[in-house]
Structures are given as structure tokens and as C-alpha cells.
């Protein structure tokens, strides 16, 4: 298993081409609505809208399914925990195993929260799996006026991710060569983990220093306002993405309020 930031989508799809800040705003709007609403209908409507967008995202189905697999298991855990540990078990009792009881009321509430997880996660996948980190950094500095030294510094560090993933593996095999191995002993596993982490962090800080020197040598710290080789702009389509997202949120809330099921927090 390797870590990589390789794009998982077709770069020409409409969503993939949208301005990252537009996507970010849309994802924030949808996730926040799902977090505020605590009924079951609002997140269900939002989820339906998100799924309708998938074909325009250019995400390959295989890649999407792999990410969604994690998502479903996370949602499932949330449902189970909320149902089992519910403050009050209302409605009909479904399961009774000694102290363990699950009622229909609790299960319904838990499912609503599970849906909330699904919405937030799907919005994240759609917004970010389709975004190139360089474009994100450019858009954050150019549209949101985020400080360039921080966004570009973060972007430069991000480039080191696959290198550090490989380094972790090398440190692990080097430790086996020295006679250190976790085996089945949990205490030893944790100790070995900590020492591997230490070696990785020392190397990481050293690398950070070298990268900073290389960047400063190319004028990164000169206090002249910098120009941008790649321009990020908000086109009409990008405003449409934001407007669409807001519309979907408003509609979802309105519909569930019309059915009388909407509740907040």
C-alpha cells in the first residue's frame, strides 16, 4: 500500500474544472447544512443531490467506490454507537440483549446522523478528490487572499508526502535489519512505532530546513508582492456552482420543513 495524491478523476469534467474556491464554498455550504439539520429528510435530499452531481465530477467509479467503502463503514459505526448509547430508547424495542436495548426511535435518530456523515463525506470527496493541490493553493491566494507564503509553503511540503511514505517503509525495514520487530506483542509494537515516528520526524524537520533554504534562495522571502504564473479566476460557471449549492441547501431545508420534519441541532 502506498500513499499518493495522484488525481482520481478526469481533469476535463465540469466539476473538476471548476475553481477550487467555488467547490470549497459549495462543499462547505452543503456540509454545514447537513450539520445544522438534525432530521432524516434534509440529509437524504442533500445526498440525492450530491449523487446526481457524481456523473459531472469525472471521478472514476472504481476510485469513488474505494473511497465510499470507508465512508459507509464510518457511517455505520456512527449509527450503531448512537443507537446503542441513545439517551432514551423510544418507540418499539427491536433488540434486547441483557443491558443492551435498541428501539425504533433511537435507530431512526441514529440513521439521521449516519446520513449526515454520508453527506459531509461525499461533499468532501466530490470537492477535493477532483481538485489539484496546486490549483487549490493558487485559488486560495488569488481569490481568498490567503497569505501566499503559507499556502505555497504548505504546497511545497505536500510534494514530500510520497517521499516520506517511502521513507517510513525504509525505516521499518532498516529496523528489522537491526533486530527490531513488533511481532504480536502490543507493547513492543507501540514502542517500535514511536521510535520509527521519531526517526521520520527528525528527517522531516531536517528536510524542512533544506527546502526553506532552497525557497529563500529563489526569493521566496523577499517582501516584493509576487506575481502569479497561473491565473485562477471565478468564471460564470464557478458562480453557478456556488449558486447551485446554495439553492440545493435551501430547497432541501424548505422541503423537509414543508413536510414538518425539519429540526435543527
Amino acid at each position: 500500500m502506498t500513499i499518493s495524491l495522484a488525481p482520481v478523476c478526469d481533469a476535463r469534467a465540469p466539476i473538476a474544472r471548476a475553481n477550487p474556491v467555488a467547490k470549497l464554498t459549495a462543499a462547505v455550504a452543503v456540509s454545514t447544512t447537513a450539520l445544522i439539520a438534525s432530521d432524516w429528510l434534509t440529509p437524504l435530499l442533500l445526498l440525492a443531490a450530491l449523487l446526481a452531481v457524481v456523473p459531472f465530477s469525472g471521478i472514476r467509479i472504481g476510485a469513488l467506490a474505494r473511497r465510499l467503502r470507508w465512508l459507509w463503514s464510518a457511517a455505520l459505526i456512527v449509527v450503531v454507537v448512537n443507537a446503542v448509547f441513545a439517551a432514551e430508547q423510544t418507540g418499539r424495542i427491536l433488540i434486547a440483549l441483557g443491558p443492551l436495548e435498541i428501539s425504533t426511535g433511537a435507530l431512526l435518530d441514529a440513521t439521521a446522523i449516519g446520513l449526515r456523515v454520508l453527506v459531509a463525506a461525499t461533499a468532501g470527496v466530490l470537492g477535493f478528490a477532483t481538485t489539484d493541490p496546486t490549483d487549490l493553493a493558487d485559488a486560495l491566494t488569488q481569490q481568498l487572499r490567503a497569505p501566499a507564503r503559507f499556502t505555497l509553503g504548505a504546497l511545497a511540503a505536500l510534494r514530500l508526502l510520497p517521499l516520506m511514505g517511502a521513507e517510513w517503509r525504509q525505516i521499518t525495514s532498516a529496523r528489522r535489519a537491526r533486530g527490531l520487530e513488533g511481532g504480536w506483542n502490543p507493547a513492543r509494537r507501540v514502542r517500535l512505532f514511536v521510535s520509527t515516528m521519531f526517526a521520520l520526524l527528525v528527517g522531516a524537520i531536517r528536510r524542512a530546513g533544506r527546502l526553506a533554504a532552497a525557497m529563500d534562495a529563489r526569493g521566496f522571502d523577499s517582501e516584493i508582492p509576487r506575481t502569479y504564473a497561473r491565473e485562477q479566476r471565478m468564471y460564470a460557471a464557478d458562480w453557478a456552482v456556488i449558486a447551485g449549492a446554495l439553492l440545493v441547501c435551501a430547497t432541501a431545508v424548505a422541503v423537509s420543513a414543508a413536510y414538518g420534519v425539519f429540526t435543527a441541532f
Partner: peptide, 12 residues
């Protein structure tokens, strides 16, 4: 500098 990996800043 010496080390090619830590001199490149951007992904492209």
C-alpha cells in the same frame, strides 16, 4: 544545492 529532492518546490 546537492539534494535534488528538496530543491524542487512545485509539483509541475
Amino acid at each position: 544545492f546537492q539534494d535534488p529532492e528538496t530543491q524542487l518546490v512545485m509539483a509541475r
